[in-house]
Structures are given as C-alpha cells and as structure tokens.
C-alpha cells in the first residue's frame, strides 16, 4: 500500500504524460500518514523479531533468581556484569573460542582457495567431460548431508580421524557450494578478457591469479563470510566428531554447560551472548557481501 513513497514517486513522475487529467489525481496520493504507518509497522515487526535477543542480553546481566520474574524485568534493576567475568572460570571458554576460530579460519581459507581455483577450471577452460563433472557437483548440493553421513563417519573412523580437527576440516573445506558460488561469478566475467590475457602470454594460472582473483574480490568475500559464519555456528559436525573436551568448539561447550548447570540461567545466557557476539560483528562488517552471496546462490544458471 505505502509503496509509493519518497524516492519512488520521483521515478513515477515521468510516466503520466499520457493522460494528464485523471493521472494527476493518481500521482498525487502522497498520503501524509503512509510513512509513519510504515515505520510503526516495521518497528513492531523488528521488535517481535528481536525480543529473543533482548531477553538473552537482559538475562545475561541478571542473577538466576531474577531471570524468571513475574512480571518480566526487561531492564534489570541492577546490572550483574560479574557474570561476564565469572563464566571464564566456570568453563574453558577461551579454549573453545580458540578451537572455533582455528577451525573457521582454516576451513574458510581452504574453501575459498580450492573453490575459486576449481571454479576457474569449470568456467574458463574448455575440455571434454567438464560439464558432466560440474553436474555431479550440483547434484550433490541437493542431497541431504544426513543421507551420507554414515559412510563419511565410517571413512573417518577407519582413517583414525574421529576426534581430530582434521576430520572436520576435510569434511567442510571442499564443499560443492563454494565451487558453485564462484563459478556463478566467473561466468559473468567476459571470456574476451581471459582471451586477451592469453594472447598477452599469461599462463592459465597467471590469468587466475592476476585477472580473475582481483576481479572477483566481492565474490571471494561473500564465500569467505558465508563459510566462516557457517563453520563458527556449526553444531552437528563437532557434535558428531569431537569427543574430547579440549577440542570442543564454542557451540559444543555451550551445549555441555547447559546440560551440566541447567539452573544457571543467567550464566547460560552470558555464554550465549559471548558465542553470538563475534559472529554479529563479522556479519555487520561484511553485511553487503554476505547478503550478495546469498542472493547470488538463489539465482540459478
């Protein structure tokens, strides 16, 4: 209803020259209540969406007894910041954060490198069997991971890799999604550009490094961010493969803490806040690339 607002009206302006009379009446309805109404609606929506976060942050600054009070105190009367110092001594959170960061960085690097490298082969070098191979990649994206997790597990078990970081790195660094996303982008780079570089005497590896990589920084950033966030948040991988406490990631550590101290409501919320904040920061910094990556993955080609 309120879609004809502000800047939009300026784009409508040039349209009406056909029939000036009745159209002027239509072009005019810059209803004064439309903008405030839109904002009011959006605010209600945002509030509904963000209530769980508000509750999480608010509870993380309370004592256990204050978490469930009737009526709810959205802003605690006194702020218990000591929760944020106490949690470090209750759980080896630092180890968990270090493990998670290590996994996320290594997996992201490998995924971005092997993904973009393979995408170059799939998009800019012509050879028999290429498209069939790519089809095999795409097909597996649609297969639910749960359908083949048992053979994967058997493989890892036979290789003695269960309960190592190597297992998780191997499982997550070579996903078909990265190849797919990068290929989408490389397909939009004109072949003439690559052809010109070939004539200039650059080898294929040179073209990849000096032409494609610099051109595809936005796509690389998208893939890197998506992979980093996914790895950081991953629950099932570490849940299945990591059994010793000193290898756990933040997610597994938090989950374990909840199981052990299920009445420590405030500290549980403190731990949740600490586990969420790094990813929020990463997301806010790279939001544009993140969103772009998702929008691209939605366009089939």
């Amino acid at each position: 209803m309120a879609s004809i607002l502000g800047p939009r009206t300026s784009t409508t302006a040039p349209v009406p020259p056909t029939t000036p009379g009745p159209d002027r009446r239509r072009a005019r309805p810059v209803r004064p209540w439309a903008t405030p109404l839109a904002y009011a609606l959006l605010t209600v929506l945002a509030a509904l969406l963000l209530v769980p976060f508000a509750w999480m942050v608010s509870s993380s600054l309370k004592t256990n007894a204050q978490v469930f009070t009737v009526p709810i105190q959205w802003i605690p009367r006194e702020l218990h910041w000591e929760n944020f110092t106490e949690i470090w001594s209750r759980v080896p959170l630092l180890t968990y954060l270090r493990n998670t960061t290590f996994l996320a960085v290594v997996i992201t690097f490998l995924q971005v490198f092997t993904g973009s490298f393979a995408a170059y082969g799939f998009s800019k070098i012509r050879f028999p069997g290429r498209d069939g191979l790519f089809l095999a990649y795409i097909a597996t994206i649609a297969v639910p991971w749960q359908a083949y997790m048992i053979p994967q597990y058997i493989l890892m078990q036979k290789a003695g890799l269960v309960n190592t970081f190597t297992a998780l790195i191997l499982l997550q660094a070579f996903s078909a999604f990265g190849v797919f996303l990068m290929r989408q982008y490389y397909m939009s780079v004109p072949d003439e550009l690559v052809e010109a570089a070939r004539i200039d005497g650059l080898s294929e590896y040179g073209i990849y490094r000096r032409v494609m990589l610099p051109l595809s920084v936005p796509a690389l950033a998208s893939l890197a961010l998506l992979t980093f966030v996914n790895t950081w948040n991953d629950f099932m991988g570490p849940f299945i493969y990591l059994t010793s406490n000193d290898l756990w990631t933040v997610q597994i550590g938090l989950r374990q803490f909840i199981g052990q101290y299920d009445a420590e409501y405030a500290l549980i919320m403190t731990g949740s806040v600490i586990s969420v904040v790094p990813i929020l920061v990463v997301f806010l910094l790279g939001q544009r690339y993140f969103i772009q990556g998702i929008a691209t993955s939605g366009m089939k080609g």
């Binding site: 092997t114 083949y148 053979p151």
Partner: peptide, 20 residues
C-alpha cells in the same frame, strides 16, 4: 582444467561423492 579442479575435487570425491 583438471589441474584447477583437482585440489577441490579430490576432497569432494572422497568425502561427498564416494559416501553418497
């Protein structure tokens, strides 16, 4: 072409294609 694809394909084939 294969030299570009292989680093990713080796991992993909062993850990996704074979299990599927």
């Amino acid at each position: 072409g294969w030299s570009f694809i292989l680093p990713n394909f080796a991992g993909f084939a062993l850990l996704t294609l074979v299990p599927v």
